[in-house]
Structures are given as C-alpha cells and as structure tokens.
Design a protein around this nucleic acid. Structure first.
Lengths: 251, 251
DNA sequence: TAACTTTTGGTAAAAATGACATTAAGTATC
DNA sequence: GATACTTAATGTCATTTTTACCAAAAGTTA
C-alpha cells in the first residue's frame, strides 16, 4: 500500500482540510450553533425524576424542555454543561457525562444547531434547584409523567435513560443519587426504580456487600416505625483501587 | 413547586432561547464549524487495524490523522459520517456509531470546530479502500503501531477503541469484521485481538454456539494444513428475534 | 499407514446464582 | 414490662453456570 496522494476528499471536490487553514472559507462552513442539553436525573421517595424547564419564548413556547443553552464561542462544551447545571442547582463539579450528539439539519427552527446531550445524577434532597439563579420555572417531574418535549428533547431524554440504565449496571454511578449515608434497602430501591426490575432482598445485599465497596457506619436509620437498618457509605477510594487492579463493577 | 418565571439562564444574562428565535444573534453564536472523524476498524490475519490518512496540508501537514471532514451546513451529521466512509471505501450503509463529541476550544487551529467521533467495523478483505476516490493516502495501520496523530485524534482513537471493546462484549458487532463465512476459531481470534485476552477454545465454542446465533454451513475451511473447521455464518434474523424477546448478548 | 494437528464433544470440580427459611433487633401496643 | 409486629440480617441448599481439562474424531502430510 504505497502512498500516492494526500487528498482528504473525493477527487474533484474541494477539501476543507487539504488547503492551508487560513484559506478556509469561514462563511460557508463556520455557521453552526452548538448547544448542550442536560438530562438531570434525581431520585426521591422511590421515584426517578427529571429536571425540566417550561419554555417561555418561541420556539416551542409553553412546552416543557430539557435545560440547555448555546455554547459560547470561547467555551469548552464540557464547561458549558457544567455551567448550565451550576446555574440550575448552584453546585459545581457535578458528575456529568455525554450521551449523544444530535445533528439533524432541521432539529432547531432558529438555524443549524448541533446539540450534545449530557446526563447527570443528583440527590434531590441535597440540591434544591429552587435555591439557584435558575430557580424559577424549573421542576422535578416524575419520569413516567413526562409529556412530549420541545425540539428533539424527547429523543434526548429517551437515549439518556437508556444510557443511564446501562451505566448503572456496570459502574457505581447510582450512588450519586443517594444521600451520603444510606441503607441497603435504599440502594436496592434506587436500582429497582432505575431499571424497573425487582431483586431478592437477601441476595441483593450479599452481592453488593461482597464487592467490598461499602463502608459500614456505626449508625442506624432514624425515625422508622420498625427496626432501623444499618447505614453505609460508598468507599470511593477503595473503588478506584479495585478498578486499577482490573476489577469491574457489575449490577 | 410553583412556576414563577421561565428564564433559561441566570438572571441578568441574556438567554439565547428566551427571546423570539428571529432575534438570535447569528454572528456571535453561529460561528462554529462542525466535523466528523471516523475511526474505522478493520481486521486481518489476527490483527486489529485502523484506517488512517496522511495529511498533506496545514495544519498538521505530514502527520497521520483519522479520516474526517467538515459537515455541510445542510447535511445531517450521521449522513456526513456515511459520506466520508463511502468516499473512503466505496461502500454505502456501513455500520457506524457515534463515540463522543470533542469540543475543546483550541482543538482545531483553524477556528472553533466541534467534532464527533464515529466508529465503524469492516472486513478488510471485502472493502479495499484503494478502490475508492480516497484511495490515495489511505492506509490500514496496525493498532499498536499507530503514532501520535494530528489534532486530538489520538484521544478520539483511544476512546473509540474503548467503546469498541465494550460493545463487542454486549452486542454481536464483531461479526462485521469477519467474512460472511468463518470458522469458530476465527471468531475467537477476533475477540482475542479486540479485547486482548485469551479464552479456552472448547469453552468459547460452547458459549457462542449455545446462543444459537450461528448457522452451521455444510462447508469447511479450505487450504489449511490440518483438519479443516466447519464454517458458520451469523444469523441476523434470529438475533433480531431474540432481542425482541429480551435476550441480551454477552461476551 | 502412521504421525501430526486442530476440531469437536464430553466430564467433573468449582463457583455463582436464586429461592426461601430462620433468627435478630428494633418499634408500637396494651 | 410483656407481647405483637415489622423489617433487618444471616444462613441453607438446590440449581445453574463457569472453568479447567481430557479424549476421541477428522482431516492433512509424509
């Protein structure tokens, strides 16, 4: 396989990369808008929730939508995602991960806007979106009550949920949705809510504990009308150690 | 949680979405370039390969890079990915899947370019990139001989490989890399190349066959200096049926 | 025909899973 | 303070799945 030419596009067509970069025609190709849409999952009382805003301006005025915004020309997109979530919840450095890119030509009526979905998990009790600058017009909605959303946000949500369900099986991301101290039954209820399946209590307990990822606290549940359960917290340090040794989390 | 306002950005900052869309300031936000970079995996003689081009123009002239191109303003990005791969291999409708978006401000010296990685799997014997318009300057390179690539392409490749390794465990994508008819040992060698692990031959065989996803042909290997193995082909239809019933492929 | 190589089918021990029973430890009621 | 009640926590056992390994079978080569 000998080298012949270095054209990066079919013959006869002009390449954007094959010309010196200062000759690139900005006007033709550099007219995209880029945005980020956040799928923020929360969990409260055995129910999986999602953070939505209600649109007050065209397009899609009055419809529910995912919180999102255009990315600034000098802003990294990961940073933009963090910014949006910070404005929404008042909290920095939240766990966020890309889901997919949505690049249909006609997905935004205002022009060509490429958007990237990000999903995030937060403990509702800990982070009240009302306390932030975005407070107004922001709601936690039960996942199975979500109506058709603006733009292609219904697709973005659907994909994000699927990715969450996959991740939660293979990475201990679920712990982000719980308070720092939790009972095993809480953890189980969380998994059941996300995956909607149900597990045998004793077996679930054994499986989780056998991974040695939880630290048993010397503290019990309070204010329950029955025997209180032991509280645990997630051992992040230990998890990182195990990962380094080739361990892989599974369900 | 009562509705109060509908502002989508922090107070005092102007929202892009909260104003009528015809007022959006195109000049400020709509100046991104969008591109697609393809990570095309191939497989030949027990080695995992990747399709690279050699850049012949600035920036990064002379360096190896992933095949990619800017997306046209009126082109869906999935379509752009297919276009690039078609120009490269002469083949339409190849299996392609997004990996991640790369949105660092300074990732492209020519301006703000957001790129999306796509990965793809092809049977090298079947699709010779030399037969296409891109023929020149396109090479299959052994995965462990890949040098540092132009732009952030080394990162894109690294991420794509990781995603491939994950997918191959949970979806029968690996078959895309093999000829239509193959022996079980070939399949095993492919998995071992992708995941770099090794499996017990007899057990691998049992596991794969127990899924009932392979059709045993009445045909054997040819031109091998020992007992020829039975050839199989992948039963796509059966796979779709099983998936519909909730089956999930695993390793 | 014999030696050789790889395929193919099989077996048995070990480990993981799943269903279910039992005991323990707290709260609530009288 | 005794008893009932509820859920936590532990334990057992049959079943299935995984893993390691052996041996026969079927072709090729000499």
């Amino acid at each position: 396989m000998a080298e012949k030419t270095i054209s990066a596009v079919p013959k006869g067509q002009k390449s954007q990369f094959a010309v010196p970069y200062y000759e690139i025609s900005y006007d033709k190709f550099f007219q995209f808008g880029v945005s980020v849409d956040c799928v923020v999952f929360g969990y409260h009382e055995n129910r999986l929730k999602i953070l939505l805003i209600k649109r007050g301006a065209a397009p899609f005025m009055g419809m529910w939508a995912l919180p999102g915004d255009l990315v600034y020309p000098n802003e990294n997109i990961d940073v933009a995602a963090q910014r949006i979530l910070r404005d929404l919840t008042g909290i920095d450095n939240l766990f966020m991960e890309q889901t997919k890119v949505y690049g249909q030509v006609d997905r935004h009526p205002a022009g060509r806007v490429i958007t990237t979905g990000y999903y995030s998990l937060i403990d509702i009790a800990k982070h009240d979106p009302h306390a932030s600058a975005w407070a107004d017009g922001v709601y936690w909605m039960d996942l199975d009550e979500v109506p058709k959303l603006a733009f292609d946000h219904s697709d973005i949500l659907k994909d994000a949920l699927q990715i969450l369900q996959q991740r939660v099986r293979h990475q201990p991301v679920g712990f982000e949705l719980l308070p720092e101290k939790f009972a095993l039954a809480d953890l189980q209820a969380l998994y059941e809510a996300i995956l909607n399946e149900s597990y045998d209590k004793a077996n679930f307990r054994k499986r989780i504990l056998s991974m040695n990822l939880l630290i048993s606290l010397k503290e019990n549940q309070k204010d329950v009308p029955h025997r209180p359960a032991r509280l645990y917290k997630f051992d992040k340090q230990r998890y990182d150690e195990l990962i380094a040794k080739g361990f892989s989390f599974e369900l």
